[in-house]
Nucleic acid binder design. Sequence first.
DNA 1: CAGTATCCAGTTGGATACTG
DNA 2: CAGTATCCAACTGGATACTG
Lengths: 233, 233
Amino acid sequence: MPSQYGQFCPVAKAMELLDERWTLLVVRELMLGSRHFNALRRGLPRMSPALLSKRLHTLVRAGVVERWEDGNRVTYRLTESGRELEPIVDALGRWGIRWIPELGDADLDPHLLLWDIHRNVDTEAVPDGRTVIVFSFPERATARRWWLVIAADGVDVCDVDPGFPVRVTVQADLRTLTRVWRGDLAWSEALGSGAVLLRGEPQACRALPRWLRLSSVALTPRPGGSPQPVAAR
Amino acid sequence: MPSQYGQFCPVAKAMELLDERWTLLVVRELMLGSRHFNALRRGLPRMSPALLSKRLHTLVRAGVVERWEDGNRVTYRLTESGRELEPIVDALGRWGIRWIPELGDADLDPHLLLWDIHRNVDTEAVPDGRTVIVFSFPERATARRWWLVIAADGVDVCDVDPGFPVRVTVQADLRTLTRVWRGDLAWSEALGSGAVLLRGEPQACRALPRWLRLSSVALTPRPGGSPQPVAAR
DNA sequence: CAGTATCCAGTTGGATACTG
DNA sequence: CAGTATCCAACTGGATACTG
């Protein structure tokens, strides 16, 4: 039961639902294509399953999400009402990247970063056959190496070596690579300063920034005319 | 201290601030022109002063609001960052009016309604001199009559008779008048059905819907092609 | 006018374990 | 796979009173 503002104002009525913690992030995950309970959990690792379940029920009751059972498989998807939240979520992302640029250490998460990157690989740009990219975060005590396996049938993330030959190794600290992903730091600058190191065939290293698309808000203009990261050529 | 999502996603970073209860309603009040603590309180009657104070401080720390002391008067206003939330708040209002049309009894509040109406009087359309409109909510046990005093120097709301001659009396139940204000119900329909009764000179009664502007979201198209309330001619 | 101080009941949600 | 169940510590915010 979302708490009530006691106002007939439509902004207040909208926020009674949407300002509950996690709610709009669940909606964001659904917008990004997650359809099943455990897929949603992967994008929301700090959310307990009990709470995710509760939020989904609230969203279903509010008509924002529909729950579909086929057999023993459950599918969630946005209704028309939920899809109309997309411009709002997008605008919140653009506002956030402009006005809340600082990240705390607690905001960094290699699993989430790899998960985002894997969702945005430009498979057209990657050579045919299997391409494996290793991400190495040497400053970390655990979860220091991640493998991105790009093949014809999709893209996978692993935190254990799948054993295939590696085409490129990307070495950086997690904060730097996160900033590149968000568009806070341009590839060119990160590579030029040595903050990101690429190892592998020179041609593959040169091509890598085109294989990995950045966050959808990466190109949002920043306030104060700070130099704008440029997209990969 | 807003709680943390542990995500670098800019939507998550934005919501860490903005999904705290009341926060976006404070921002909305500032957008509507409130500048002082007690002015904000008038638009947020169910919010305790301690909580309003806390939210304002959080917004100032986040760079969304600036606090200005001149003498012993304190002024709050939105920064550039805060002003950039306006399209988001507007979009939330349009989404809310489309997808959360039902109002509970707890959402109805004559003081808030009169306060909204008073902020939106079209003083150009009202005859010169003083015009007093009485709003009568006969079904209510308390706060049954409200006076709107429109003069050259501004518009006032009273819940006690200011003693001036009354030009028009608007009688309706609170829910009906709230629905008219929100654009859920057209003036023409409300008057035609007798749900709203106007008393006074016929000419003034005919003109009244043009004196009172409706909510800024009143003309938002509704889903499902339900008949759209029309603006006052 | 513009808040602060205090108290405390109620709610929230994290952790963990478990189920059909 | 898709959740429930349970427990409980922490937080939240409402009420009320008070201050410079």
